[in-house]
Simulated scan of single mutants.
Amino acid sequence: MPLPEFAFQLRTFGTEFSKMTRWLLTEIKPEEITLTQFEILHFLYTEDSATFGQIGACAGMSLPNTSREVKKLIGKKLVAKRANLKDKRVYFVELTPPGQELMAASSAKLERLISGRYSHLNPAEISEVMQALDLLSEKLLGNGTAE
């Protein structure tokens, strides 16, 4: 396949995947937090602990905006920050037990949404899609999950 066609298909797929991800996140996020705050919580749910810089890079936010959003989440008792023992200038942000509960409930809701949306797929098709996802992860993201 010529590279321009590959780039076009990859861009189209990426755009549609981004729309789907945004829709799913909007559907599963609790009403009392913003989508930006939920994205931070989702990142922490997958990473366990992260610095303000890592959170900002993932969410595409400046450090002051990241700090402001994390402070709001601390106020809601969904995250806590702790100083790095080796460098007191660096703080790690982690989910609190209520934050973990909220994200576990959101994760369960996400599984239900995905199951419902793709219930028309038979087991062979699901296997085929999973293999395709492994291949995409390996070839495009460098995750090395494909065999």
Rank of each mutant, 00 (worst) to 15 (best):
I74F: 10
S119E: 01
K81R: 14
R89S: 15
G116R: 06
S127H: 13
M103E: 00
L121N: 02
V79I: 11
K71I: 06
H120E: 03
N84Y: 12
A83Q: 08
K81L: 08
G99A: 06
T66D: 14
V79T: 04
D87W: 06
K77V: 13
M103A: 05
R89F: 15
K72L: 07
F92T: 07
T66Q: 07
Y91E: 01
Q100N: 04
I114R: 10
G75T: 07
V93E: 05
R89Y: 12
Q100A: 08
V70K: 01
A104L: 06
N122D: 13
A108D: 14
A83Y: 07
V70P: 01
A105P: 05
N65V: 15
E101V: 03
I114K: 07
T66V: 13
G75E: 04
R112E: 02
L110D: 00
A83N: 08
P123E: 05
S115N: 15
L121I: 09
P98S: 07
I114P: 02
A104N: 09
K109C: 03
A108E: 14
G75K: 05
L110G: 00
S107F: 08
S115E: 04
R82I: 11
N122M: 15
M103S: 00
D87Y: 07
V70A: 06
Y91V: 07
N65Y: 13
S115I: 08
E69H: 01
R112H: 10
G75Y: 02
H120W: 12
I114W: 02
E111A: 12
L113V: 04
R68Y: 13
G116Y: 03
S106W: 10
E101L: 02
A80C: 11
N84G: 06
L85P: 09
L102K: 08
L113N: 03
D87V: 05
Q100V: 11
V70W: 00
K72I: 01
R82E: 14
A80R: 03
K77A: 13
S62L: 09
Y118E: 04
G75L: 06
Q100C: 10
L85H: 14
L63E: 03
L95S: 01
V79E: 01
F92K: 02
L110W: 00
L95F: 04
F92N: 14
I74P: 02
E111R: 15
I114G: 04
L121C: 02
A83I: 08
R117E: 00
T96A: 12
K71Q: 09
A105S: 11
L85W: 11
